[in-house]
């Protein structure tokens, strides 16, 4: 099977290049990650992140034939040859398919992604109705792979100021949690032409999310909450 892979090693390369590979796969190689591991067996200089190989850790996000996705759950049977693989767009490349994700995580951290509740803790669990818990579905499952944020033009232009779809999805995850008491501070944190309102509902995030989540919907909900508290 034929692959064309983005290569760049700051130690040895003056500029990035595309390298072609034509490799013999084993019948057990079903996912793109299997193929990349196979390539690495032959050429150990190819660098990429990978861990769980089942789509829950979010390590192996990359741009596959022009579209962001996780290599470990992209079936080889579904991709067109030659498979063009590049690092996630919009973030600085460290080496080959490995990008510097600091900016992405900084934005995630900026929404204070942890439960805030100053009421003394009960002896047992805080109660939450199944319906209230259901509000968190489609939010808490995010694996922070950055497929969404790095496919978002608004994030490309302003990664330092726009929280991005992943961060905003997590911001809403806590806004939607009935146990969280910091709603007003959270909304203050986001009411900003850059942090939240750079989202122009392009919806690339929804299109690429490997977990089928919908950040645009979450962003809409945040705006709705802001309007409600204003009027």
């Amino acid at each position: 099977m034929r692959f064309s892979i983005y290569r760049y090693n700051p130690d040895t390369d003056a500029a990035p290049r595309m390298q072609d590979y034509d490799i013999q796969l084993e019948p057990t190689d079903r996912m793109l990650l299997d193929a990349l591991v196979r390539i690495k067996e032959h050429d150990d200089t190819l660098s990429l992140r990978r861990s769980c190989r089942e789509g829950v850790c979010g390590s192996d996000a990359m741009n596959i034939n022009g579209r962001n996705g996780l290599a470990c759950i992209t079936k080889l049977a579904d991709v067109k040859e030659p498979v063009v693989i590049r690092p996630l767009p919009g973030l600085p490349v460290i080496r080959d398919l490995i990008v510097d994700m600091s900016q992405f995580f900084k934005q995630y951290h900026s929404v204070k992604p942890y439960l805030q509740n100053d009421t003394p803790e009960p002896e047992k669990e805080r109660l939450q109705s199944p319906a209230d818990r259901e509000e968190l579905n489609g939010l808490y499952e995010c694996i922070l792979c950055a497929c969404c944020s790095t496919s978002c033009p608004s994030f490309w232009w302003n990664p330092d100021k726009f929280v991005g779809p992943a961060g905003l999805l997590q911001a809403y995850r806590f806004l939607a949690d009935t146990r969280d008491e910091a709603t007003s501070e959270r909304l203050d944190n986001l009411e900003d032409p850059y942090r939240l309102f750079r989202c122009h509902s392009i919806m690339n995030c929804v299109d690429v999310c490997p977990k089928g989540l919908n950040p645009t919907r979450a962003i809409g909900k945040i705006k709705e909450m802001m309007i409600k508290r204003t009027v």
């Binding site: 942890y114 439960l115 669990e125 805080r126 818990r133 968190l136 146990r179 969280d180």
Partner: peptide, 9 residues
């Protein structure tokens, strides 16, 4: 749970 874990209910 107090840390915010989204347990089912």
């Amino acid at each position: 749970e107090h840390f915010g874990m989204p347990f089912d209910r």
